[in-house]
């Protein structure tokens, strides 16, 4: 698996797993005392309107605000990213990890066959709408950018 720094991950929807608390001792000690330890899974929930401050949630529960400078001190590995952020060649297959929207959004996506666990192939990522195809279905699904932002796919790498 590709090791990636959290510094490329300042995008809502990204999920990463902490590998090490980094070399800044103050930050590392603070995080450790809050129970944020290597192995914890961080979700980037949102960025503050003026940037640099980021809301993350840890292991799908408690939310924290931290600054970019604290986040880049960590070494983490990105495990899931929004569909719009994938950078593989065309026709790469991804597994859907999570639908990051509200209930209405989830129902709408599931009605179109986009649900957590299924594999999708991205046919055209650059334009709008983004065209994807579920591996076990013929039908091509067209997604708006806003929708694609809320579809989180696993990083399979390689």
């Amino acid at each position: 698996m590709k090791k990636t720094d959290c510094k490329f991950s300042r995008q809502p929807g990204v999920e990463c797993i902490i590998h090490s608390l980094g070399s800044d001792e103050m930050i590392a000690q603070r995080l450790a005392q809050m129970g944020i330890l290597p192995g914890a899974r961080l979700h980037i929930v949102r960025l503050a309107p003026l940037g640099t401050t980021i809301e993350v949630s840890v292991d799908g529960g408690q939310s924290f605000a931290m600054r970019n400078s604290e986040l880049v001190a960590l070494e983490c590995e990105i495990v899931a990213i929004p569909l719009t952020a994938v950078d593989g060649p065309p026709h790469t297959t991804y597994r859907i990890h999570r639908l990051a929207g509200g209930r209405t959004f989830r129902h709408r996506m599931e009605a179109r066959g986009i649900e957590p666990g299924c594999f999708i192939k991205i046919l055209d990522q650059t334009g709008s709408p983004i065209r994807v195809q579920r591996l076990d279905q013929e039908e091509i699904v067209k997604l708006g950018r806003g929708e694609a932002n809320k579809i989180i796919v696993k990083v399979t790498g390689g």
Binding site: M34, Q62, S63, A65, R67, E70
Partner: peptide
């Protein structure tokens, strides 16, 4: 100043 990691 201290590191900024604040619970929401």
């Amino acid at each position: 100043s201290e590191p900024f990691i604040m619970e929401i």
